[in-house]
């Protein structure tokens, strides 16, 4: 398992959190998605045999949120 931390552009509506969380949780191989509203960060664990950090970043970008940087750490 890997853990990805994505830094987003400033999040302004709390409902964005539910949206991002829902979308990432629907991806296969993703778990423990946590959206930090005030820090504008996403933390999620994923199985690198099923998806990748870039795939996840794309999901978020397609929802309409800018991914500024992303950092992956092996768990």
């Amino acid at each position: 398992m890997n853990k990805v931390t994505m830094k987003l552009g400033d999040l302004t509506c709390p409902s964005c959190m539910t949206k991002i969380e829902g979308a990432l949780n629907h991806q296969t191989g993703v778990q423990n998605v946590k959206v930090l509203f005030n820090a504008s960060k996403i933390k999620a664990e994923f199985d690198d045999s099923q998806t990748s950090a870039d795939d996840l970043a794309n999901v978020v970008t397609d929802l309409g949120y800018e991914v500024k940087s992303s950092k992956v750490k092996a768990l």
């Binding site: 509506c13 409902s15 949206k19 397609d62 929802l63 309409g64």
Partner: peptide, 18 residues
């Protein structure tokens, strides 16, 4: 345009957004 697009993407994630 940006409002509708966000509304649709939220709906896809099964969220009723503002």
């Amino acid at each position: 345009a940006p409002i509708v697009l966000r509304a649709i993407s939220a709906l896809k994630a099964k969220v009723f957004s503002i």
